[in-house]
């Protein structure tokens, strides 16, 4: 992002603070929604297929416990940083970047292990591939200019 666009962004947030303008859709909001959607898909398919591979024989309550633990992890690494971005704390988005990279690497490793028969599993590799692609796209969007603009917008807006 260039310094000229940052100056323009600052002027925009100043006019909002002064009450001269109202922004309905903050810049980059759809990118954030896409990131959340992609990370939900990646999390569900990764943990779902991991249960099929490593915990297919365990009882239902344990499977459900793993699913709910993943929801807790998602809350900490995706929802909380997103809310913090709206509060102007842009540094928390690092948590989401770390989470997407972790999912990316783990799903890639599991896919490779399943393809090369390193793990004996009847589970389909399609969910793992979906998880890999979703987390890769989420990572690309997390590093995109659009998301950076969203972070800077709320940072300037909340800065006193």
């Amino acid at each position: 992002m260039t310094s000229a666009s940052l100056t323009e962004l600052k002027e925009l947030t100043d006019s909002i603070k002064a009450g001269e303008r109202v922004i309905l859709l903050p810049p980059g909001i759809f990118t954030l929604i896409a990131i959340i959607g992609l990370l939900i898909t990646a999390t569900v398919t990764f943990f779902g297929s991991s249960i099929s591979i490593f915990a297919s024989e365990v009882e239902i309550p344990i499977k459900v416990a793993i699913q709910f633990t993943s929801m807790g992890i998602f809350l900490i690494f995706v929802i909380f940083p997103s809310l913090m971005v709206f509060q102007g704390n842009k540094r928390f988005s690092t948590l989401s970047i770390f989470y997407s990279i972790s999912l990316l690497i783990l799903s890639l490793l599991l896919t490779l292990a399943a393809v090369t028969n390193l793990i004996n599993s009847d589970a389909s590799i399609t969910p793992l591939l979906i998880s890999f692609v979703s987390s890769l796209l989420a990572y690309i969007l997390l590093r995109s200019t659009s998301f950076l603009l969203l972070k800077e917008f709320f940072y300037y807006l909340k800065k006193t």
Partner: peptide
């Protein structure tokens, strides 16, 4: 509903100063 509520959160956070 989740997607729309995020749009609303973003919009309302930007509208507070007014």
């Amino acid at each position: 509903a989740a997607a729309l509520s995020w749009v609303v959160v973003g919009g309302s956070a930007a509208v507070i100063p007014v």
